[in-house]
């Protein structure tokens, strides 16, 4: 079944302040969407609201994945339904070993898969190599002492290992140099299929040169104000956001 994420008239606030003011967006398997917008438009808020971050309050609308209403579900229920957010600034979790964490997360999201520990780690090593993380990272604490770029590589590693259906990448290119960006983009393209839909949140057009989206949306002041194709991102690169009216 081709997955489908339907965001309908989504409204959300942080500490009483309304940030999202009615977002409508549908992401299907086989689709690559980019969400752009000026600083403070609410892009990261959307990512956090979709994943169910407890600091954000949904005040209206709905989030539905494959017919299942996730609007009031916990973050773990959303993850198990197949939703994944690559965080803009992933936090360090001291003492929690990367390999153990990933293995536990996989078992929660794929309880039916009886893959052995060795198989799982073998697969992990293949992908670590692809995203440019040394095998020694397996026994390190999650994000602890990682550089910005290493954190981003690890987010992508988690994505390919946990095999989600709908993926939100929040500023995945920040902190990555040109070579690293290429590796990450390759991994994203390799994972991309008819059964996977992407929502790439980005302020700049840079990553969109590596991964070409079919759809580009512009979020401004809590609402999507432009729906177009990749030409929108090219225009933003040249002219900025001033041409877009609310």
């Amino acid at each position: 079944m081709v997955p489908e994420l339907k965001i309908k008239d989504l409204k959300a606030s942080v500490e009483g302040k309304q940030i999202l003011k009615g977002v409508n967006l549908t992401v299907k398997g086989g689709e690559m969407h980019a969400l752009m917008g000026p600083n403070g438009a609410g892009k990261s808020t959307l990512g956090n609201v979709l994943i169910g971050h407890p600091n954000y309050e949904i005040t209206g609308g709905s989030i539905v994945l494959d017919g299942i209403d996730l609007t009031n579900k916990t973050p773990e229920e959303r993850a198990r339904a197949g939703l994944f957010l690559a965080f803009q600034s992933p936090v360090a979790v001291v003492g929690v070993k990367l390999s153990t964490f990933l293995r536990t997360a996989y078992r929660q999201t794929h309880p039916e898969d009886k893959v052995t520990l060795t198989e799982f780690y073998d697969r992990m090593k293949v992908h670590m190599k692809k995203v440019g993380l040394d095998e020694s990272f397996m026994s390190r604490s999650v994000n602890d002492g990682f550089s910005g770029g290493e954190r981003k590589r690890f987010e992508i590693l988690q994505m390919v290992m946990l095999r989600p259906k709908i993926i939100i990448l929040d500023e995945i290119d920040s902190g990555l140099d040109v070579d690293a960006l290429k590796l990450v983009a390759d991994e994203i393209r390799d994972y991309y299929s008819e059964n996977v839909g992407f929502l790439i949140i980005t302020h700049y057009q840079r990553i969109l040169k590596n991964i070409e989206p079919q759809f580009v949306h512009v979020l401004k002041d809590g609402k999507i104000v432009v729906d177009g194709d990749n030409s929108v991102s090219l225009r933003i690169e040249e002219e900025g956001y001033d041409w877009i009216k609310n």
């Binding site: 994943i51 169910g52 971050h53 407890p54 600091n55 916990t74 973050p75 773990e76 959303r78 993850a79 198990r80 994944f84 957010l85 965080f87 992933p90 936090v91 979790v93 929690v96 964490f101 990933l102 536990t104 997360a105 996989y106 929660q108 999201t109 988690q158 946990l162």
Partner: peptide, 13 residues
């Protein structure tokens, strides 16, 4: 909250 949310967003209760 950030650490908890991060782990939970990967499927951990």
């Amino acid at each position: 909250t950030e650490e908890l949310t991060y782990l939970r967003s990967r499927g951990l209760s």
